[in-house]
Design a protein around this nucleic acid. Structure first.
Ligand code: MN
Ligand code: MN
Ligand code: MN
Ligand code: MN
Lengths: 220, 220
DNA sequence: TTAACGATTTAGTCAAGGCTAAAAATATAA
DNA sequence: TTATATTTTTAGCCTTGACTAAATCGTTAA
């Protein structure tokens, strides 16, 4: 069984998150930005992760996560997201406060703890940001979802997740009244700058820039 | 404000626990045994803790914890014991399973997390082993308590804590039916080997060796 | 009052995980 | 195609916290 250090676990999680499409590898600079460490430190870590065979590492080309790596990354995301649910549902944290604390809690090593937590929380399927929580086998029940900018005029849907998890963005959403679960309808789409106006829960209209809208994910 | 690393926090907690009486300092070897590290490693750490002025360190003589150190140690014990309550009360851990996990959880840095946890747990005053939980100011509501061996023949009391927190000991107590909160009466005290027989909750009699009895703490 | 023993500290080493500065490889533009 | 710019890696250094082996201090028994 492969054992990861705290730092290795953090890097692997970052690499997994950065490898959406999958064709070209994840770059050292991207990882550096995500992890807020220097590219030199990333190179060093990539060598280690390569040796442990959780990533495929070809110098000067991006890295790809391996099957084994994917399993470990999903395990980490499961822990992280369950803790986030705990913090929000049980300890009344707001969704913009959980990241830091959950990042630390995620390193606690105890499979039984995570299983019990899952059970205690009622086997939640999504975290406070709408991200899916892998089950104990690493299976993810993903929902089809689109950026709000892709919804057609007069189209309706439900906010199910956010791309940007920064506290600033999440607090902004709180302020304007956008939240996970809200039913929305697109009232206007401005061609010029990509901004949109939406109706939330048939009650409130919100005007938002394209930068905001692309980070809101909607299920039809 | 003094910042401690994880290791420093662990050592300080150990030193605090080992400095009951207070007159003579805690020895390097004692700390080494408690921490399961080598005496050479302890010496190194004592130097660091001395520099941070959380202990008073005179080479070759024991160490004493300072006022500042006591505050930090109590803060750590508060975290540790609150997590233990969480694990037992909410996640159905048994009292012999909590130590390892709580030892990791204790390092999560978030004052708000601990305050919320305290509130969520209903401001518990004692942990699953009967140890008092310091409040946010470091105040400890301690109960007078005696080893079971010190209770006189036919004397009564209530089990309120245990000295030994090893899984083996705690599981033994589970097996014979001794638990925190149990009302007991001393039915017999064997002079020869210090063993005792007690009546638990007016129902069950338990015979136990001196080694067991000294580790059970009773409130009159 | 010393010699020996045990406890403690020092010296030197290692691994993890960061950093900066410099070198090297890749990518891009002339 | 060559020159420049960007990206990535390497080299060397630092800190933390372990370790072993050797030196040193303190205490105790002869
Ligand atoms: Mn999340
Ligand atoms: Mn499954
Ligand atoms: Mn305890
Ligand atoms: Mn108080």
């Amino acid at each position: 069984m492969i054992k990861l250090t705290h730092a290795e676990e953090n890097y692997l999680k970052a690499i997994y998150k950065l490898s959406d499409a999958g064709k070209k590898g994840v770059s050292t600079n991207d990882i550096s930005a995500e992890m807020k460490t220097k590219p030199a430190s990333v190179s060093d870590m990539l060598r280690k992760l390569g040796e442990k065979e959780v990533i495929e590492y070809r110098k000067y080309y991006g890295v790809h996560i391996t099957q084994e790596g994917k399993i470990l990354a999903l395990r980490t995301l499961r822990k992280q997201r369950l803790w986030e649910v705990f913090l929000v549902d049980k300890l009344r944290f707001s969704w913009d406060e959980v990241a830091e604390v959950a990042d630390e809690l995620v390193h606690v090593q105890s499979p039984i703890l995570i299983q019990r937590l899952d059970e205690y929380l009622g086997f939640p399927k999504f975290d406070p940001h709408g991200d899916p929580i892998p089950d104990e086998h690493g299976d993810v029940r993903s929902r089809p979802r689109l950026p709000l900018t892709e919804i057609e005029l007069n189209g309706t849907g439900q906010i199910v997740a956010v791309n940007d998890k920064s506290a600033a963005f999440l607090r902004y959403l709180d302020k304007v009244g956008a939240y996970i679960g809200a039913r929305i309808k697109v009232l206007e789409k401005v061609e010029f700058d990509g901004s949109v106006e939406i109706l939330v829960d048939n009650k409130k209209t919100i005007f938002m820039s394209k930068d905001v809208a692309v980070n809101i994910l909607v299920m039809l």
